[in-house]
Computed example of a mutant assay.
Amino acid sequence: MHIIVVTATSSQIPQPIHGKNLSRLTRECFANQQSLTIDFKDVKSITLGFFQELFLPLVAEFGSDYLKSKLKIVNMAGHIDNMMQSAFKNLEVYFDKLTAIDQLGCDEEIYAMNQAWLIKAREIARENPVMTELILGITDEAMRLAVGRLSLEDIDFIARSNWLCFTPRFSSQFIQNINRESPSMVESMLGLSGNID
């Protein structure tokens, strides 16, 4: 299997949550006895957390020898490689975060999804009321203003709740019919309607 990072993450600067998602895809490949190539073509910058969330769980689960035989990294620019080396040398924050999440008793993946969603929602809510409604489905003006005023401490507090902060904007019928529509049609339907039946 071949995964292109910029395509898989749809992000100019892949974040820790993207690393976690790619790590999950990698496990699926290995479970199906497939090798995997991760392609860093056109990646201009990256976060340290992306590398930590992608590679550290895999090393712990499979071991470095297995990864060397099944996982191939291609098209990594020199400055991205330097950032990866830095990520592996600066693990204190990563392990402190895991310890804190464990002590709080919250699910690490729900925490990460909540945190990523809330940060992005705050950014959109501050910049553009129309996009807040279209992209996030937030139609209430008071909610938009409240989300736009969230501090990082507020976001962290809410993210640790162990409850997902967002819900699907589509019905089970929409999911059942999803393969009958083209990707661009699905994107348009989600964008033009707050809730999809």
Rank of each mutant, 00 (worst) to 15 (best):
M113K: 06
E61H: 01
S161F: 09
L36R: 00
K41A: 07
S86T: 06
E109T: 08
T47V: 01
F30E: 01
K41C: 11
T132H: 05
F62G: 00
E28P: 02
M84F: 05
L22Q: 07
I38H: 00
S45R: 10
M76N: 08
F95S: 13
A31W: 13
F157I: 07
P16N: 14
P16C: 12
Q34F: 06
K120T: 10
R180A: 14
G105L: 14
N177L: 12
N179W: 08
F50N: 11
R122C: 06
G105V: 13
S182H: 15
F88S: 01
E133G: 04
G78R: 13
P16K: 03
I175P: 01
V59L: 13
L192H: 05
G49T: 09
G194L: 15
T7A: 00
I155H: 12
S184H: 15
I4R: 10
S64K: 06
D197H: 08
L134V: 11
M84H: 00
S171D: 03
T7P: 00
A8H: 01
S64M: 14
D197W: 12
I80F: 10
R126P: 01
L22A: 04
S172T: 07
D197A: 08
I178G: 04
A116C: 04
Q115A: 09
R144Y: 05
P183N: 07
E28R: 13
G137Q: 06
N177H: 15
V74A: 05
G194Y: 06
K20A: 15
L25K: 14
G49W: 04
I155V: 06
F55Y: 15
F62H: 04
S64Y: 05
I101P: 10
D107N: 15
R144V: 12
R149C: 10
V59R: 08
P183I: 08
D96Q: 13
T167L: 03
S182M: 15
H18C: 07
S69W: 03
Q15E: 14
K72F: 01
H18E: 00
T139A: 10
S161Y: 03
H2M: 14
D140I: 14
S161V: 03
T26C: 03
T9P: 00
D156Q: 05
A100F: 10
I73A: 02
M189F: 03
C29G: 13
T167K: 07
G19T: 09
L25V: 02
M185K: 15
K72V: 05
D39W: 00
K89T: 02
L71D: 00
I124L: 10
G148D: 09
S182N: 11
C106L: 11
C165F: 02
L71C: 00
F166N: 04
L118W: 12
M189T: 06
L58W: 03
R27S: 09
I196W: 11
F62M: 00
E141F: 09
S45F: 10
T139H: 06
G19R: 13
I46S: 02
Q85W: 00
F157S: 07
I80E: 11
I178L: 15
L164H: 00
D140G: 04
M113F: 06
Q15R: 15
S10F: 00
I80R: 10
I178F: 13
N128I: 03
L190N: 12
P168F: 04
